[in-house]
Amino acid sequence: MNLTHIKHTSPLKVLFVLLYPLLLACCTTAVAPEVEERNQTVPEGYFTNPIGEGADPWVIRKNDTYYFCSAGDGGLYVSQSEKLTEPGEKVLVWETPDTGWNKSNVWAPELHRFNGKWYIYYAAAKKGGGPFIHQRSGVLESEGDDPFGPYTDKGMLYTGDSINYAGSESKWAIDLTPLQLNGQLYAVWSGWKENATTDKTKQHLYMATMSNPWTISSNRVLLSSPEEPWETGGELDLNEGPQVLKHKDKVFLIYSTRESWLKEYRLGQLTLTDTLLNPMQPAHWKKEGPVFQGTDSVMGVGHCSFTTSPDGTEHWILYHAKKSAVPGWDRNIRAQEFTWTANGFPVFGTPVPAGVPLPVPSGQMEED
């Protein structure tokens, strides 16, 4: 926990922060995976996880408002709230079409803002259900500076190896996210080396340049494959869900690895060794991990996004976790503060069990 704000907190909160490591150690071994005591009395100034249902949480902060983006029945949704730990009511901002490449299997949207407009990056398919062999990545653009739209469909993004050949097929791609660095925009995503007839296919991380927020302008480059011992050993080796994290003079890609439907799902980290180097060169990234993984009571942690507290003094991770050890995608969304080392690397710590009171983000106002 961040102890730099103790002088601004109540004596009760100070006591909690000081005793937090011992409390967490006890809860990690004593709380059953399915315990989510949402009906307990939570002290003022605290919250408990989970903060919502679903998976692949995305949050972006603008001024004093948090905007959350998610996929659901019929399309893509945006909600807003002044409280990071209390996402607002979801509003449908884009409906899936009746036909086309993106009519089904809408996954893991992200909401970004460039040049006074909002963009939603998402994955979708031309056919619903499995096998999930048709996933591709697309983008929507707002008509004005309003995250609730209306939005224009800018189409499928090219995620293949033959961008200079008209009509060349895009490759399987999900979890696309943009990276701005040194005046250049890049796309990073999870994809297959070749399109396949089975979804039991290894996933890798790729990068390409972008000429604008809706156009990929180069062939993809392979950044990362699941090769380390902590990335392999399960039913299917995956690298997916890359997220950009910047801090001071460093750039990180925090990504999910292992199988999303199993309790071993976890986070790995790619660090750009020098931000003046070309990020399209795989050798310029250093891999390490796992940097955030589950416990006996918080399982399958992964697919995160990052933001700051309302007063900007704390850094927070939103992630999803499985509700039980049973294989599948029954998950919920959680929030937790993380810190940094003295030389600027993230420290995500240990996921806190459901039902354990945590201090709300610094500067988050309570209801009168």
Score class of each variant (00 low, 15 high):
residue 157 L to Y: 09
residue 144 G to Q: 03
residue 222 L to G: 06
residue 122 Y to F: 15
residue 190 S to M: 08
residue 245 L to G: 02
residue 173 A to Y: 08
residue 137 S to E: 10
residue 124 A to M: 09
residue 152 T to P: 02
residue 228 E to I: 06
residue 249 D to G: 12
residue 207 M to S: 14
residue 244 V to E: 02
residue 155 G to F: 09
residue 235 E to A: 15
residue 175 D to A: 08
residue 226 P to N: 07
residue 172 W to Y: 15
residue 192 W to S: 05
residue 159 T to F: 12
residue 155 G to D: 04
residue 217 S to F: 14
residue 152 T to K: 14
residue 179 L to S: 06
residue 157 L to G: 04
residue 136 R to A: 09
residue 247 H to F: 10
residue 189 W to T: 00
residue 194 E to Y: 12
residue 251 V to S: 05
residue 192 W to C: 10
residue 241 G to F: 12
residue 142 S to I: 02
residue 206 Y to W: 15
residue 242 P to H: 03
residue 246 K to F: 05
residue 175 D to F: 13
residue 186 Y to W: 09
residue 186 Y to K: 01
residue 141 E to L: 05
residue 186 Y to R: 01
residue 136 R to T: 12
residue 223 L to Q: 01
residue 144 G to H: 00
residue 151 Y to C: 04
residue 255 Y to G: 11
residue 121 Y to F: 10
residue 239 N to Q: 08
residue 208 A to F: 15
residue 222 L to S: 11
residue 133 I to Y: 06
residue 140 L to C: 06
residue 157 L to C: 11
residue 154 K to P: 12
residue 190 S to A: 15
residue 228 E to M: 15
residue 162 S to C: 04
residue 145 D to G: 02
residue 141 E to A: 06
residue 183 G to V: 14
residue 217 S to Y: 09
residue 131 P to I: 04
residue 165 Y to F: 11
residue 251 V to A: 09
residue 244 V to F: 07
residue 127 K to L: 14
residue 160 G to I: 08
residue 200 K to L: 13
residue 149 G to T: 02
residue 149 G to H: 07
residue 119 Y to K: 07
residue 186 Y to S: 10
residue 193 K to G: 10
residue 222 L to F: 11
residue 205 L to Q: 06
residue 239 N to V: 08
residue 211 S to V: 03
residue 245 L to D: 02
residue 250 K to H: 15
residue 198 T to G: 04
residue 163 I to C: 04
residue 135 Q to C: 09
residue 225 S to K: 07
residue 226 P to G: 13
residue 165 Y to P: 01
residue 152 T to W: 05
residue 191 G to L: 13
residue 161 D to Y: 13
residue 253 L to P: 02
residue 240 E to K: 05
residue 145 D to E: 12
residue 213 P to F: 06
residue 189 W to N: 00
residue 189 W to G: 00
residue 162 S to T: 05
residue 256 S to A: 14
